[in-house]
Design a protein around this nucleic acid. Structure first.
Lengths: 335, 335
DNA sequence: CATTAGCATTGTCAATATATGAGTGCTAAT
DNA sequence: ATTAGCACTCATATATTGACAATGCTAATG
């Protein structure tokens, strides 16, 4: 078990390191703990043996290990209130009646990125419990139409369909009507299968040239299903952090940001605001991700802030909690 | 004026440097030119004095200057034919009847990025000569709708509109009908002004609660106007090039990539395939951009490849020219 | 007059040495 | 349990050196 002073030393080391990004030596803590550097060193040694602190080399000061951050977040951090200044900025956004919810969310993430110099991500509109709400077809040229699909949560996707020249436009709108009649209310992830097993047999009888048309719609609708809406704010902010001073680290994190499975890695998260440190992120060992889902009933998505492990946990946690709450009340009221 | 041998030396230096990224010394060219290193040195000196070559330090080999690359592209490069291998890859894409044009274009840029390790960009659907072709409103909840706008080129945009609770849905669809009647066929960049000066006076009489509704549509439509479609391929490829071995250069180019005016910087270009070197790019002095517009009548956009100044000019130029031609024929046929 | 051989010059790069300073671990004394 | 003191370790910074790769220049050559 950790003694009281040891806990406090760990807390101070984490907070100092968060602030300055410099390893913390024993001397610098003497006044604060009213004891000699040797005493601090002894405690630090214990903390290191327990896995909470590390050294970069044998004679460097201590920095928190991943477990150290974790212990700090779970036990040491005092959930101070969000600072008045921060709160003010956010409140003016959410109380602005002119601003619709989407824009308010985006703006609030911009503020987070600005004041913290971290990167934030907004993942919108997970398609899993979206229901198909309308299919629309708009002719573009003689041989092509745009298929537009709208969900009950207001998510819109579109796909251009090139038609074989021998298809009559009437056939197309007939198909569209049918799709509307039969598919409205279907969860998006079931659309493809229902299309295949329920619609296909029927369309066969109604529409003369059903096969080409069916294929086109099938591709359009299933393509839609997989697309996700991702909004970055301050994508390169994290590079300003001193931990990213080596080329390889920079290249590495950037390519992670561009990778295709990033969305799924961020997306899987809980309802509450949660902290994922280093290896817990399944994204990159050098970063911390603080994220949460929001759900207004009408709309849902994920908010995430990505920063160095040396992230200002207290502040970001507070900010995200506040924003989540604001979104959910503002979203609720407007319903 | 440059002598024949001098031109050839410049040509070889550029090509060697493109291939190896190592400064080219006088000795290494002796055999090729059947003369002593001193002779080469003299010529190199002349080339340096004329601004075509540079040294990194007093005793390094020579590398091409920006003007050197320019001279090479304008006068020295022999527009060899596209290599059989490259052509084959691209042709299979464009001859694939299953693939629609958009996907074919994207796939072809993927290939360019793959084989060259450069970054490519596809800018779709410049809105300037898009005509508004349909406005659609889909109700989402009691107090919100999605406005969907389609252009004659198949570009779709949408915007959620939060309605004040006291507005009847019928008012909304009445407004929508009116917009369709009056705005279809209008160039996108005129929509906002026509909305204000022509529609507003009329809507006033037709719709009881016109103001809120008008504002909502105004915002939605003008917001739409400014959005652009950007597709990156191999966004981080360029970082693999040896010129990006310093942190600051990497951070710099990445933040340029994320900057908001990037689109406009890339977009302004000519119909033919053109080369912009270093400072000519107005993007970053360390890169070369080769770009072109394509226009199939039905669809238009910009293709661009971004690489180091030490870019393989011949190859990329050929690839882009080929793709542009393929797009325009394939696009034409499908009309 | 263009070309060349020869040589001093100038820079990079890698290896080596050297000093400095920050911080530790350990031990013996308090 | 705490502390003072000391030897030790390592990072960082700086200077020195030699090997090497090119260069510019000059004087000789065909």
């Amino acid at each position: 078990m950790l003694g009281e002073r040891q806990k406090n030393i760990l807390k101070v080391v984490v907070e100092e390191y968060i602030k300055n990004a410099h390893p913390v030596g024993s001397q610098s803590l003497c006044k604060k703990f009213k004891c000699s550097s040797a005493t601090i060193r002894n405690d630090m040694l214990t903390l290191e043996q327990m896995g909470y602190l590390e050294k970069q080399h044998i004679s460097s000061g201590r920095i928190p290990s991943e477990e150290g951050y974790r212990y700090y977040v779970d036990n040491l951090m005092e959930p101070k209130k969000i600072s008045g200044e921060d709160m003010l900025k956010l409140q003016t956004i959410f109380s602005n009646k002119e601003l619709d919810l989407n824009s308010a969310i985006e703006k609030s993430l911009e503020i987070i990125s600005d004041i913290t110099n971290y990167t934030s991500i907004l993942l919108g509109k997970a398609s899993s419990d979206n229901l198909l709400s309308k299919v629309e077809v708009v002719p573009i040229t003689k041989s092509s139409v745009v298929a537009i699909v709208v969900t009950n949560k207001g998510h819109v996707e579109n796909k251009e369909i090139d038609l074989p020249t021998h298809i009559d436009l009437k056939e197309v709108s007939k198909t569209c009507e049918l799709l509307n009649k039969m598919l409205v209310g279907t969860p998006l992830d079931e659309v493809a299968s229902r299309l295949e097993f329920e619609i296909k047999p029927i369309i066969k009888n109604y529409v003369t040239n059903y096969e080409v048309l069916y294929n086109a719609f099938y591709e359009a609708l299933s393509n839609f299903q997989s697309e996700k809406d991702v909004r970055w704010t301050g994508k390169t902010n994290i590079l300003k952090q001193p931990e990213f001073s080596k080329v390889d680290d920079v290249k590495n994190i950037i390519s992670k940001f561009e990778s295709k499975d990033l969305v799924s890695k961020i997306e899987e998260t809980e309802d509450e605001v949660k902290v994922y440190i280093g290896s817990e992120t399944s994204l990159d060992d050098n970063v911390t991700v603080i994220k949460t889902k929001y759900n207004t009933g009408k709309r849902e998505g994920t908010l995430a802030v990505i920063g160095p492990k040396r992230m200002d946990y207290e502040r970001v946690l507070n900010l995200l909690e506040f924003i989540k709450k604001e979104i959910e009340t503002k979203g609720g009221i407007n319903d």
